[in-house]
Amino acid sequence: MDRFENMKKVNTWNIVLVFAVVVLAVTVALLARHSAASSGDAVMKCILTRTSIRAYQDRPVEDEKVEQLLRAAMAAPTAGNKQPWRFVVIEDRQTLKEISAHFQTMKMAEHAPLAIVVCGDMDDTFPEDGKDYWVEDASAASENLLLAAHALGLGAVWCGVYPMQERVYYLKKLLHLSANIVPLNVIPVGYPEGDAAPKDKWKPTYVHYEHWNGRKLR
Score class of each variant (00 low, 15 high):
Lys9His: 06
Asn11Ala: 15
Thr12Arg: 10
Leu17Phe: 15
Phe19Gly: 06
Ala20Gly: 12
Val21Gln: 08
Ala25Thr: 13
Leu30Ile: 14
Leu31Thr: 13
Ala32Trp: 13
Ala37Thr: 12
Asp41Ile: 11
Ala42Val: 04
Met44Asp: 11
Cys46Ala: 15
Arg50Lys: 14
Ile53Pro: 00
Tyr56Asn: 09
Asp58Leu: 11
Lys65Ser: 07
Leu70Arg: 02
Ala73Thr: 06
Thr78Asn: 05
Asn81Pro: 03
Lys82Arg: 15
Lys82Tyr: 13
Arg86Tyr: 02
Arg86Met: 01
Val88Ala: 08
Val88Gln: 05
Ile99Ala: 00
Ser100His: 01
Ala101Glu: 09
Ala101Lys: 04
His102Trp: 08
Phe103Lys: 02
Thr105Met: 14
Ala109Lys: 05
Val118Thr: 14
Gly120Phe: 09
Asp121Ser: 04
Asp123Leu: 08
Asp129Trp: 14
Asp129Tyr: 11
Glu136Leu: 14
Asp137Lys: 02
Ala140Leu: 09
Ser142Cys: 12
Glu143Phe: 14
Glu143Tyr: 13
Asn144Gln: 12
Asn144Phe: 11
Ala148Ser: 08
Ala149Tyr: 03
Gly153Tyr: 04
Gly153Asn: 01
Val157Asp: 06
Val157Cys: 14
Trp158Ala: 06
Pro163Ile: 07
Glu166Asp: 15
Glu166Phe: 09
Tyr170Cys: 03
Ser178Lys: 06
Asn180Arg: 12
Val182Asn: 05
Leu184Asp: 09
Asn185Lys: 01
Asn185Cys: 10
Ile187Glu: 06
Val189Glu: 10
Pro192Asp: 07
Pro192Leu: 04
Gly194Met: 04
Pro198Phe: 14
Thr205Ser: 15
Tyr206Ser: 11
His208Lys: 12
Leu217Tyr: 03
Leu217Ile: 05
Arg218Tyr: 10
